[in-house]
Design a protein around this nucleic acid. Structure first.
Lengths: 339, 339
DNA sequence: CTGAGGTGATAAACCGGTATAGCTCCTGCA
DNA sequence: TGCAGGAGCTATACCGGTTTATCACCTCAG
């Protein structure tokens, strides 16, 4: 007997299937003595529920989904997703929920996946990342009535539940530090403008200008690629009035920017300070090692999992959980500007 | 009516559930006219099979699994897994099979996952990576009768089906090139010694010594971390007779090694040539950009998916598919040695 | 002594598909 | 004319759980 079923257990225990089900799920209907006996037999036969059978009856599949819509090429350098996935699983495995991961090319494909998952009952809910300004996924998920939690995008009213970190505060902590070092010409190499977090960071920089008495603090958007990160840096360093510090919206762009500085003979941190808005092994491998904003992505994922499970259990619930603030890890790429 | 079932379709079409099932699965038993009518109604009601129901009856779940046993911390820098997963999904989605991904801490946990997946019928088969010399997973999977495909490890007799690239040839292509440039003192910073591919690479280097007339070619094992990569490099460059070229078993270690060379004032590629046995954006971001061995990991994953599906359909099948050979991408970190 | 109410269990329906036995025609051939 | 055989379809069992209706039995209050 390879895979015992509850019928096998019922036979052996001399009770009905129903009694076994009650016993195994810890619900009333059987005496403590019978329950103990059933549990012991189940244990001994090393019984496990057949996930499909349970899903069919109970209409929950104990599985949630995460779709990442990025070309595979740009993925993987960023530890972000690996850590996020690990954190998610850590939060889910405590409840024996499995994670379905899918990488697709674009948002249309992503929505299509949600549609399929929903109609095939493959997941109980999903995690959303990279929220854009007018994100079509929000409406699609609402229409499908598929529980969802947004990561990173703070929900307004009528929005989906979310788990978010304060991008604004984080960016301010960087700019404040640079200003305190004496920098007055700061540049910001931002990511894709349609991401909500990009917008928030740009706004934070702009708002800080008068307060900190900055001469200038332009935000230049890119597609997050190393190529555009390098090109933008080249442009910035070719100006008559160079910035003395550059903040990059990702670690990859920061590394590319460091390369450009070296290539142009601009000393880091002597002539130029560099900060990455995202930490990873990449920033630590560089010479000089890059000052970076560290986020606890693992914990982020864990919390998102918890929130999603709450929302799955109670779809009407509105949760907006703010996670721990990111901290600035100062390394060798930042210093006061030369006079 | 939110989610139509085949019973709904049967009602509307005025036929039995069985007829609908036949029609939707393209099997004989209904006339072409009826089939067409049923398909049209199904389409119109946007019917999708309930995955759990199908799994329960047909005892296949249209889902395969991949477990990665590495501490989350070291993951993610390596684009390898991201590309592999994308490739796998590309190969699977053509057959509407989904991929279950799990990251765990160690091999014991990994085997535990297989056990759970198997008894809960959550997957039809699994993909194995990072095969070690006496890998306990092989026996565990055989005992569970869970179809599996090994990635990277070429199976001997009695082994699991596999998809593999020729590590030996790949390593030889690197060493041959370095020798052709004139290098006679070559060092090899290898990965964890218990990995099969590490063993094969070490053997390839050793065997090449007499043929190429190398003075020396030691292979030093590490744990694949940047820290050990750096430490090993430091040791090598501190010797009286320095190697003039170093081959690293991973891109991360190669980057760390480059850092050490710079820190010690060893010019790359003037005094030292560096080659990474694995390509990624990391190697391209460096200055100088690193010569690296490029593998088509995406294609690798695609082929593995195909093979796994064959094995799932026919468990007795023995397949050992050799993939395209990796190619050496020469960049700026290699040059003839100074006299 | 009787009836209400709670406890511990069972039998059977159900979830949404797939697989199979069997039934009804219709056709073709002897 | 009779019958074998196949096409086309139906009815039903089945997969492995969960859930509900029902029931026997015991206890206790009136």
């Amino acid at each position: 007997m390879a895979r015992p079923t509850i019928a096998d257990i019922a036979d052996k225990a001399g009770v009905s299937k129903g009694a076994v089900s009650f016993a195994l799920n810890g619900r009333p209907g059987v005496s403590d003595a019978t329950r103990a006996r059933i549990l012991q037999i189940a244990e001994q036969m090393s019984w496990r529920p057949h996930s499909a059978a349970r899903a069919l009856g109970a209409s929950r599949v104990d599985s949630v989904g995460l779709v990442i819509a990025r070309p595979a090429r740009t993925l993987g350098v960023e530890p972000f997703f690996a850590h996020l996935v690990s954190g998610l699983q850590s939060g889910l495995s405590a409840h024996s929920i499995s994670l379905q991961l899918l990488i697709v090319e674009d948002t249309d494909a992503e929505i299509e996946v949600y549609r399929r998952w929903s109609s095939e009952h493959r997941v109980d809910g999903v995690i959303l990342v990279d929220l854009t300004v007018k994100d079509p996924r929000v409406e699609a998920l609402r229409a499908l009535e598929l529980p969802a939690v947004v990561i990173g995008g703070r929900g307004g009213k009528g929005a989906l539940p979310s788990v978010w970190a304060d991008d604004r505060d984080a960016m301010l902590s960087i700019v404040d530090y640079l200003a305190a070092l004496g920098h007055r010409r700061i540049a910001h190499v931002a990511g894709t403008p349609n991401f909500q977090h990009t917008q928030r960071r740009i706004r934070a920089v702009r708002d800080a200008i008068p307060r900190l008495g900055l001469i200038d603090a332009p935000s230049l958007t890119t597609d997050f690629s190393d190529a555009e990160g390098a090109a933008t840096t080249r442009k910035l360093l070719s100006q008559a009035e160079r910035p003395t510090a550059i903040v990059y919206d990702s670690d990859v762009m920061a590394v590319a920017g460091l390369g450009v500085a070296m290539e142009m003979g601009v000393a880091v941190p002597g002539d130029l300070s560099i900060v990455a808005f995202d930490d990873s092994i990449l920033t630590q491998l560089m010479h000089p090692a890059l000052t970076a904003l560290s986020r606890d992505t693992f914990e982020f994922g864990r919390q998102a999992a918890e929130v999603l499970l709450e929302v799955v259990a109670e779809p009407a619930k509105v949760i907006n959980l703010r996670t721990a603030d990111p901290v600035l890890t100062v390394r060798e790429s930042t210093a006061p500007p030369k006079q």
